[in-house]
Amino acid sequence: MVNSVSSQDNLVSVRNLTFSRGSKKIFDDISLDFQRGKITAIMGPSGTGKTTLLKLIGGQLFPDHGSVFVDGKNVHQLRRAELYDLRKRLGMLFQSGALLTDMTVFDNVAFPLREHTHLPESMIRTLVLMKLQAVGLRGAKDLMPNELSGGMSRRVALARAIALDPMMILYDEPFTGQDPISMGVLVHLIKSLNNILGLTSIIVSHDVHDTSAIADYIYVLSEGKIVGQGTPEQIQQSDSEWVKQFMTGAADGPVHFHYPSKDYVDDLLSIGKRY
């Protein structure tokens, strides 16, 4: 169990985190640990606030209670400049890629280098080409983001995320909406980048099959709580009804097929009334 490992090995620890949006509790007192050098996945159905968790880790949102430690620092107590220094060491891959649409692929990858370093342009060129080579898109350097397919955008975004050689990458739904080939490419990239560059990766996903293939540890979230955790094997053999339903994709189970509603017959018979 991760909890028994000394906190030295955890790059990120989330402690007793509570976060609500309006009256809806997104997270209810959850604690998670992300080990250094490993790929940790956070899984759960859409709408459980997995992306919100990444934004809390990146310091873009503030929790109601609890704290998030990244590399020993409490993210939400940092000053702005310190937070920005921390973020330079984090890469985040957004679901949409979030490429700047008014720049070429090359300039997008060069963007963090130009903003944060004073390297000469020749050095930036070399670095950018290396990063693009790593994701296999060196040939696409002069294209604009709107000329890229979804999978290519994500790979460019990945090249941009590793431009400053971060210690950790946060992946927001990297596999959603990808064809099998791009999916395979991304799975391979995430795994190999993590191993070769010695990164720590956090993947938020609801794609059971591909995520459990590369994750070292998995948390399963539902309705603000952790409903299961463990290595992919442990999760597969979990005896929790909920986790079983999620992993096998059964249509009905602890998570009901129907959105909460009042009695079906009553609803059908209440003709003429709008509510």
Partner: peptide
């Protein structure tokens, strides 16, 4: 928000 996460 992508820019924010890149510390820009």
């Amino acid at each position: 928000s992508g820019m924010e996460m890149m510390a820009v």
